[in-house]
Design a protein around this nucleic acid. Structure first.
Lengths: 140, 140
DNA sequence: CTAATTTTGCAACAAAGTTGCAATAAATTT
DNA sequence: AAATTTATTGCAACTTTGTTGCAAAATTAG
C-alpha cells in the first residue's frame, strides 16, 4: 500500500522522507496554488523553514511542482499534472487564474494558452498567462 | 523648456522633486523593464532606498509605470505607454518578453494579448502574458 | 515671501530567502 | 539486518527585500 506521495517521490528518484511526503500531501489536498508561507503555516511545527524552502526547490527542479508568475511578488507553487511530471522537460501550457476576491490562484488545466505571434527575431521557449478576475466560487 | 519627466509628473499631479525626476529619467532612458535593484544601483548615492520604494509605489498608483509578473519573484517595472497613462484606469494589453540569455524583460507594445475563453463562472479583470525565450538582440 | 502640505532620509524593524555545518535519517552494500 | 555510504534536516547566522514612524527638508499654494 504505497501512498500517492511516496509513489511520486520514487518516480522522481527522490529519497522518501517525512518532510517531502508531508509537503507533497499538502499540495495533493489543496485545490489552489500555495505560497511558501501557506505551507509553512501548515507544518512549521514539524519541519523547519529551511527544509520547506529546500523541498520546494527540489520539487521544482524535478518538475513535481511549477511556479506561477504574479505581480504581487509572492511565489506560488502548484502540482504539475501528470503530463508535466512524466515529460521531465517542463512546459505548462495552461492558463492560471488569480481571484481578486478570495485571493486564490488556480490552474485552469483545461484552458490552453492561445497562440501568439511575436515579431521576427524572437524565439519562444515558454509562455505564461495569468488572468485576474472573480472566480467561480466567489461569483455565486 | 520643460523636460519630459517634469511634464509627466505634472500631468499626474505629482510634486516635481529631484528623486522623482531622476527615477523617471532612468526609465525613460531604458529600453527594458527595471527592478528596484536596478534603479537603486543607479542612484542610491543620491537617493535613499526608501525613497525609491515609495517613488515606485507612487508611480504605480498613478499609472506611470506598470509591473510585470515573473516566475523569478523579482518585481520589474516598465513605463506605461501613452494610452495607459491617459486612461488612468490601467490595463496593459501587451505581451511581455523575458530573454533567457540576457535576462532583460521587454514590453512588446505592438503584440496584443490574444483572446482566451475561460470556463463559465469566471469573470476577467486583467490578463498578463509573459513569454520567455531568446530576444532579437541575443539571437543575432 | 510665508504658511501649509508633501516628500525625503534616517533608524528601526519585519519578512523572505540563503549558506555552512554538524546531526540525523534514508538508501545501499555486504 | 547490521554497517557503511549518501542524502536530508535543523540550527544559527546572515543577506536581501520591503515597511513604518517621525523629524528635517523641499515643494507647492496663497
Amino acid at each position: 500500500m504505497n501512498k500517492q506521495s511516496d509513489q511520486i517521490l520514487k518516480n522522481s528518484s527522490l529519497s522518501v522522507t517525512g518532510g517531502r511526503k508531508r509537503i507533497l500531501d499538502i499540495f495533493l489536498s489543496s485545490s489552489n496554488a500555495l505560497a511558501h508561507q501557506d505551507i509553512e503555516s501548515k507544518c512549521s511545527d514539524q519541519y523547519d523553514r529551511v527544509t520547506i524552502y529546500r523541498t520546494l526547490q527540489t520539487f521544482l527542479e524535478k518538475g513535481i511542482i511549477h511556479n506561477i508568475p504574479s505581480t504581487d511578488n509572492i511565489t506560488r507553487y502548484a502540482l504539475c499534472n501528470d503530463a508535466c511530471i512524466s515529460t521531465g522537460h517542463h512546459h505548462d501550457n495552461h492558463v492560471h487564474f488569480k481571484c481578486d476576491q478570495c485571493g486564490k490562484t488556480l490552474c485552469l488545466d483545461e484552458v490552453t494558452i492561445p497562440e501568439v505571434n511575436l515579431p521576427k527575431g524572437y524565439s519562444i521557449h515558454e509562455i505564461n498567462m495569468v488572468v485576474n478576475g472573480i472566480c467561480k466560487s466567489c461569483k455565486k
